[in-house]
Amino acid sequence: MDVLLNVFVGLHIIGIASLLGGFLTQMKAMGAGTARFSPAMLHGALTMLVTGVALVGLHQAQGHGVNNLKIGVKLAVLVVILGLVYVKRDEEKVEKALFGAVGGLTVGNVFIAVLWN
């Protein structure tokens, strides 16, 4: 079961990397006002959602305690990110504030995961 848990942790990190990497590669375009949400950002957010749910289920199946408040906050932030990226995925240009909000929420979600005990 530990191997499966570690596989899902790895996939979760790949999802974060895809979402955050998509944001970081568009930083220059964001400054020029031509940034857009790439398919990798949408797929990364979806990967984070699926693997995050799987991780919670696996932790609970092993009898480990789960901080439901932390998971709820992370899920809410991810749903906002996913909603923004999904709705604006086909637009040629995304507003700077909206694009920056997705990046900020993504970084915030990482810090919630790491710092909230």
Rank of each mutant, 00 (worst) to 15 (best):
A32Q: 15
N68E: 00
H64C: 03
L98D: 10
E95G: 13
W116G: 01
L5P: 04
L58E: 06
V73C: 02
V107S: 13
L46V: 08
A101M: 10
F37W: 01
I16P: 13
V87D: 14
Q60R: 09
H43I: 12
V7T: 09
G63P: 02
D2A: 08
V94L: 09
A29S: 12
G83E: 10
L78H: 09
T25F: 15
G44S: 04
L4V: 06
T106D: 10
V7A: 12
G15H: 03
L82D: 04
A61Y: 14
G10F: 14
L19P: 03
F37E: 02
G57H: 07
M27W: 15
L20C: 04
A97V: 12
N117G: 05
G104Y: 15
A32S: 10
L82G: 07
I16S: 14
G22I: 03
Q62R: 09
V102I: 09
K88S: 07
A54G: 05
Q62D: 11
T34Q: 15
H59N: 07
V102L: 07
V50P: 13
D2R: 07
T106Y: 15
V50G: 11
A40Q: 14
S38A: 10
I112D: 01
G104L: 11
N68W: 00
G52C: 06
M30W: 07
V110F: 05
M1W: 12
N117P: 06
L11D: 07
M30S: 12
H12D: 10
G72N: 01
F99C: 03
F23D: 00
S38L: 15
